[in-house]
């Protein structure tokens, strides 16, 4: 099962990550859920995933700070930002740190899946 794609889900709300993780798992991905920025960074240090879903709005360490630190560890891993609100101002701040897309929580999981697939495709092409 070495072909399984590793997804890291960083969001403080388990009520959101559980169904999302379930959905991704049902699509054949290997999902790890963590519920804080610190845990997420620790996971990345441990082993870099294939793709990260990162919530912007988290207590203690917010998404932007988490992203900055992840980029110090790894500059290439594709990151899709998760946001509860369609607010462009929020994402502008993170665009400097190379993000592969924004997934709004209100949208269907299917949309998140398409974003994930597109990001992975682009990433693979760049790798080659």
């Amino acid at each position: 099962m070495t072909d399984e794609i590793k997804v890291l889900l960083i969001d403080d709300d388990p009520d959101f990550t559980q169904p999302m993780a379930f959905w991704l798992k049902s699509k054949g991905y290997l999902v790890t859920e963590v519920h804080s920025g610190e845990e997420g960074i620790a996971k990345v240090k441990e082993s870099v995933p294939d793709i990260i879903f990162l919530d912007l709005n988290m207590p203690v360490m917010d998404g932007i700070e988490t992203l900055k630190r992840i980029r110090k560890i790894n500059g290439n891993v594709p990151v899709i930002v998760i946001s509860a609100y369609v607010e462009k101002a929020n994402t502008r701040d993170v665009e400097d740190y190379k993000i592969s897309g924004v997934f709004y929580k209100g949208e269907d999981f299917q949309k998140g899946l398409s974003l994930l697939e597109a990001a992975l495709r682009t990433h693979r092409k760049l790798k080659k």
Partner: peptide
Amino acid sequence: THELRTPLIAIDKSIALLLTKDP
């Protein structure tokens, strides 16, 4: 409204997931 939205999304996503019949 921000606070209302968070639980609402969780409910919405859970129900959506049940309706996919994946679970």
